[in-house]
């Protein structure tokens, strides 16, 4: 039997067995990445929208930097957050290194540019259509940003989802600041890395299949919401 068919069996066994240890890992993965995507959205959506509707010196530079940061390697985000949260670092006093909170912070840093940049793009496209009408009605830039955020809510779901997808799939940042502690900070990707290290490739691949399935389901769900909304609101 080759590794792939073994992996298929393994993931089926994991899924059907509903092993409580595995469930806890999946739950932590989802919780950490959802929390990170939420935090990054709360910060990134308004930032992206403001950049989209305002014209100010240095704007082009910020857009370029934001787009570049979308490709930020997770390990780098992890390293920066690690150095900040380490006892020897400026935020060491809080003692949150190697906790889920640290993982959420690192993933927020990682995902923020993605959500902000995609929001900027989305809102700027919409702004091109709305600008004259809204200006004619006497809108202020910050009110315009809010209005567009709400009006583009369904397409922005995709931006948030992209952020979540990046968070839940990355391993470098959570490994670094979470420490892959069994039962505390071990998530799906760090488990996959660990099982790969132990040479248990079928188990690692099986976990990968489950991760993929989760992300796939979520994507399908968001697509369905968008589809419904587009028919409902035009």
């Amino acid at each position: 039997m080759n590794t792939f068919s073994e992996a298929a069996l393994e993931s089926a066994r994991l899924l059907l067995g509903l092993d409580s240890h595995l469930l806890a890992i999946v739950a932590l993965s989802l919780e950490v990445s959802i929390a990170a995507a939420l935090c990054a959205s709360v910060i990134g959506l308004p930032i992206g929208a403001m950049i989209a509707v305002r014209r100010f010196p240095g704007r082009q530079f910020i857009v370029v930097v934001l787009n570049a940061l979308m490709g930020l390697p997770p390990v780098v985000a992890g390293l920066v957050v690690y150095l900040l949260l380490s006892r020897a670092g400026p935020l060491g006093g809080y003692g949150i290194l190697f906790t889920p909170a640290a993982m959420i912070i690192a993933q927020t840093v990682l995902v923020l540019p993605i959500i902000a940049a995609l929001t900027r793009q989305s809102i700027e496209d919409a702004w091109r259509d709305y600008e004259e009408q809204l200006k004619s009605l006497g809108v202020t830039p910050s009110r315009a940003a809010l209005t567009l955020l709400w009006d583009c809510r369904f397409s922005l779901l995709t931006a948030v989802l992209a952020g979540f997808g990046r968070a839940v799939a990355e391993v470098g940042a959570v490994m670094m600041v979470g420490g892959n502690i069994d039962g505390v900070t071990r998530v799906m990707t760090t488990t996959i890395a660990l099982e790969t290290s132990k040479g248990d490739l079928p188990l690692a691949l099986g976990l990968g299949a489950i991760l993929l399935l989760l992300v796939l389901t979520l994507n399908a769900l968001v697509l369905a919401i968008r589809d419904f909304a587009e028919r409902r609101y035009g």
Binding site: S86, R87, A88, G92, L97, F98, G179, N180, I181, D182, G183, V184, T185
Partner: peptide, 21 residues
């Protein structure tokens, strides 16, 4: 009580301890 193990190479593990983490 809980023991939370962060597993690294010996050198990195000692670095971690040196930083107080």
């Amino acid at each position: 009580m809980q023991v939370r193990v962060v597993a690294l190479g010996t050198g990195q593990a000692l670095d971690l301890a040196r930083r107080g983490d």
